[in-house]
């Protein structure tokens, strides 16, 4: 585990840059991660996706299936990869402060 400064506070991150305390997440942190993920500056569409992920996570303690994400945000996969070059899991979820996906996904 490593520590780094995100949004002005010291945060613990794993080897792949996922924050370890999702509760501490805020917009400043998201923007700082977005800089590392080549998703900065964050546009309205970026936030649409990040907020969707965040809300889903707060409700279900997990990221939504990618197909659900695409259907419910109206952003197709290609667009998502344009917005988040790291992809929906390693890019968007990381910025939204979700834990790294686990299991056979």
């Amino acid at each position: 585990m490593a520590k780094t400064t995100l949004g002005g506070i010291e945060m613990e991150i794993d080897e792949d840059g996922f924050i370890q305390e999702p509760d501490k997440w805020n917009k400043e942190i998201a923007e700082d991660i977005a800089k590392l993920e080549s998703a900065y500056p964050m546009t309205e569409e970026h936030w649409k996706l990040v907020n969707y992920l965040r809300d889903y996570f707060l409700k279900y303690e997990i990221a939504p299936p990618i197909r659900m994400l695409v259907k419910q945000t109206g952003l197709d996969l290609k667009k998502i990869y344009q917005l988040f070059p790291g992809g929906p899991a390693k890019g968007a979820c990381k910025i939204a402060g979700l834990p790294k996906p686990t299991g056979c996904v």
Partner: peptide, 18 residues
């Protein structure tokens, strides 16, 4: 929590209706 993916029974319900 029920699954190595982190899916809880509650999340499962949501995914099934999806």
């Amino acid at each position: 929590v029920g699954s190595s993916t982190g899916i809880t029974p509650k999340a499962l319900g949501n995914i099934i209706s999806f």
